[in-house]
Design a protein around this nucleic acid. Structure first.
Lengths: 191, 191
DNA sequence: AGCTGTGAAGCACTTCACAGCG
DNA sequence: CGCTGTGAAGTGCTTCACAGCT
């Protein structure tokens, strides 16, 4: 079945890799708009987002045809289309579970609000924390929510972010680089 | 040139996708070790890490041949080999730049220490913060370090983590799901 | 003339399916 | 016999290169 609808999210199958890059394009476009720039070519926008221009054009082609040949993209229009594709034109309430150091900092983090997410609930199971007011919200009680083994009901999406994991990946590359430098003379022996 | 060395990081070219999963395997193995389990088959370990068993075996095959056919993997041995591959058998000092809410929380975060990273320096450019003691360290001054446009010298690796980006990706999938449910009856018309 | 949009080619990762070994 | 380790097949993403439009 090929469903024809007005809504972009249904028209095409957008690759996951593309979806993961759209927020960065949106950020770059917001930056351009703030600097009063109204039109941009793929070469420049892709540089600002840290990808190749062919990649950017291919990614944007999944959303539709919003560029002007010979000219480039209108910044405001493209920003709106990406926002719509990401579903940011609607309201997404956010709950923060766990208000230790990190949760506390996140509750106060302005980056959510400026990008369209509204923190509406703070939840913790610790009696000592429940009832406290943080960033204008009162911490409410939650029975239990073990974060170590998160088993997810059908239909719930999860994205896992772990800074220690990121550091471990950096450690791998750091080690590889250090070792490559050590053996470089050896490699030069037989060209 | 094929360099033969004792160090695993030089023996093979390990795919980036594999490297990104190794920390999760290591976490799962640490968990098993804590529960007193000394041997594990790929089926069980892969389930704990959230991947297919074939994926796990393929990934581990890049490190070497540390399993026992007909039995499985020895938990301690495999954990050590992955640690070594990731470069976690050496010391990696970490500096935190910027001690606002998030930096403050990270300085106190125990997850770094338990996974082999040692926070050795806290840096901020804000006079009001410099000199303050956080988590046993004194915040030192740094001239400037604009985080918005991070231009990186050659040889420096960067991994970017942005929770707002993650939420935007979730918003996309949330929207797509909501819309798919709406149009589902339409799709059923022509099987 | 210049830049987008896109088939086609190339590349990297995942999954299959089974040989090989303890 | 059971589970690992791995060629081969399959899949999805990236890059190329240029036709097509303004």
């Amino acid at each position: 079945v090929t469903a024809v609808t007005a809504d972009p999210a249904l028209r095409r199958d957008i690759p996951d890799a593309t979806v993961a890059r759209l927020p960065e394009y949106l950020r770059a476009l917001t930056d351009l708009a703030d600097r009063g720039i109204s039109s941009v070519a793929s070469e420049e926008l892709s540089a600002a987002a840290g990808v190749r221009s062919a990649q950017l054009r291919k990614d944007l082609s999944y959303l539709g045809s919003y560029g002007v040949r010979g000219v480039g993209y209108e910044v405001d229009l493209l920003a709106f289309e990406i926002s719509r594709e990401l579903g940011l034109t609607q309201d997404w309430p956010v709950a923060i579970v766990g208000l230790g150091n990190l949760g506390h900092a996140l509750a106060a983090y302005s980056g959510f609000a400026t990008r369209g997410f509204r923190v509406v609930a703070l939840l913790d199971r610790d009696r000592a924390v429940v009832g406290r007011r943080i960033a204008g919200l009162t911490v409410r009680s939650i029975e239990d929510f073990a974060p170590s083994v998160l088993s997810v009901p059908d239909g719930v999406d999860v994205r896992k972010v772990d800074l220690a994991t990121e550091l471990q990946i950096l450690a791998f590359h750091g080690q590889r680089k250090a070792l490559a430098a050590q053996v470089a003379p050896l490699a030069r022996v037989a060209p």
